[in-house]
């Protein structure tokens, strides 16, 4: 058990969007898949997300965005991550994400996208795959 490092995930909801059901359920699903999940709660600024990810030394930042602002948020956060030398952390995003935006998100540097309706199996599989 000690040899295999646990995946640590920060689940954060940036901005004013108050839809937290998905984020909370995904947190539980990832825990049940053996990951350590830090749930930061609603209304996080990007600064807070960066600070938390640093202090908690997470492997993944998982944003849950239902507001439609996923593109600018991910772009800004990615820039900040690079500034702070956090490129090793994988950025992932879930929520209300239109499929046509996925290529653009990948281009920004987002490692994986889990739009509404993705099954938990696929989410867990996708997360694990980032570390194979």
């Amino acid at each position: 058990m000690e040899t295999k490092n646990k995946i640590r995930v920060l689940i954060a909801k940036p901005g004013l969007d108050g839809h937290d059901k998905g984020a909370k359920i995904v947190a539980l699903a990832l825990r049940d898949a053996g990951m350590e999940v830090i749930y930061s709660g609603l209304h996080q600024t990007l600064d807070q997300i960066i600070q938390t990810a640093t202090q908690e030394a997470v492997d993944v930042i998982g944003l849950s965005i239902m507001s439609g602002a996923h593109l600018p948020i991910c772009e800004k956060l990615m820039t900040m991550m690079k500034e702070k030398g956090l490129e090793d952390i994988c950025l992932t995003v879930g929520g209300v994400i239109p499929h046509q935006d996925i290529p653009r998100l990948k281009q920004i540097g987002v490692s994986a996208v889990f739009p509404g309706g993705t099954s938990f199996e696929d989410i867990v599989f996708g997360m694990n795959k980032l570390f194979e």
Binding site: R31, S40, Q44
Partner: peptide
């Protein structure tokens, strides 16, 4: 796995 939820209550100090 684990949900580490204590931090949630201390978020105002996050920055």
């Amino acid at each position: 796995g684990a949900i580490l939820g204590d931090r949630l209550r201390m978020q105002r100090h996050a920055s």
